[in-house]
Amino acid sequence: MYPVFPLAHGWRSPSSAPWSSARKSLKILGEQRVVDVTNDLRTARARKTRGEIERLRRATSLVENGLHSFIANARVGMTEIDIAALISGRIVAGGGVPRFVSVTSGSRSALADAYPSGRSVAAGELIRIDAGCTFDGYWSDLGPPSSSESRTLGRARYIWPS
């Protein structure tokens, strides 16, 4: 049996693989015996079973529920940490594991993937939220909103009138 290494992430050849075990195997066996299975793995991972799709949907719905909880409970003076805790609490209550809950506001809203701070949100300020979780090993990450989600988000902007 040949050692098999995925060569994704810009690796140009098996010899450029960063793993020390890959380099050791290449030294012992030679490049002729190492098989690049990057495309095979990518193809296999692109297909999902019904159970996998359900777990992905569940993970996504947990984050959406957290965002809806924030919209329903938002108040001027909440801190970024309060908001992150509200979203995370909803995710955990639904059986998920929060993996990233980035909340920034005001002058900090330009920061991507920043940890929430103790900064209080003032009326009229922009709040930026990026959140994701895992459910039964499957990750959520939300993309651009649908038209119905856009309507919900449009209502959210009026929580903190300027």
Rank of each mutant, 00 (worst) to 15 (best):
Y2A: 09
Y2H: 10
F5D: 01
L7A: 08
L7E: 00
H9P: 02
G10W: 02
W11F: 13
S16C: 13
S16E: 15
A17S: 12
A17M: 06
P18Y: 04
S20L: 13
K24M: 11
S25C: 14
E31G: 08
V34E: 04
V34N: 02
V37C: 07
V37S: 05
T38L: 05
A44Q: 07
A46W: 02
K48G: 03
R50H: 06
R55P: 02
R57E: 14
R57S: 13
R58I: 03
A59C: 06
A59T: 03
L67G: 06
F70Y: 15
I71T: 11
N73G: 14
A74T: 05
V76Y: 01
G77L: 13
M78R: 03
T79I: 14
I81L: 11
I81F: 02
D82T: 05
D82G: 01
A84T: 07
A85H: 04
A85V: 06
G95W: 07
G95D: 08
G96W: 04
R99V: 05
S105T: 12
S105N: 03
G106D: 04
S107T: 15
S107D: 11
R108S: 03
A112W: 04
S117V: 03
R119W: 02
S120R: 11
S120N: 05
S120A: 12
A123D: 09
A123F: 04
I127Y: 00
R128D: 03
D130R: 12
A131T: 04
T134A: 10
D136W: 06
D136L: 10
W139H: 11
S140M: 10
D141G: 14
P144I: 06
P145A: 06
P145Y: 01
R151L: 15
Y158K: 14
W160A: 11
P161M: 15
S162I: 12
